[in-house]
């Protein structure tokens, strides 16, 4: 687990300050999309090894949702972006 995350608003912080929601890649389907599309979005996740994008919330800091790009094998962190800036609608 990457233990230091550089929040774009608060600076470098320990991972204990964050809540991890999970994969940031699935895109929310339209409200009337098929049950299959919703099932995929809600339940199905790939489980890759390597570079991943996740939603992290800086709960003990600025409380903003962030997109963390990191390698779950080497623990390297590539980028941390505010979710709003990353073009995401996460709340």
């Amino acid at each position: 687990m990457a233990s230091l995350i550089s929040c774009p608003h608060c600076g470098t912080r320990p991972k204990e300050e964050f809540f991890i929601r999970g994969d940031a890649n699935p895109v929310r389907p339209a409200p009337m999309a098929t049950d299959e599309a919703w099932n995929d979005y809600v339940h199905l996740r790939v489980n890759p090894r390597g570079r991943i994008r996740e939603h992290w919330q800086h709960v003990a800091g600025c409380r903003r949702w962030l997109v963390v790009e990191r390698d779950n094998f080497t623990h390297e962190v590539f980028a941390v972006t505010d979710a709003a800036k990353a073009g995401e609608g996460a709340r």
Partner: peptide, 9 residues
């Protein structure tokens, strides 16, 4: 800054 002190924000 908002920080975590032990388990308190």
């Amino acid at each position: 800054a908002n920080v975590l002190c032990n388990h308190l924000s």
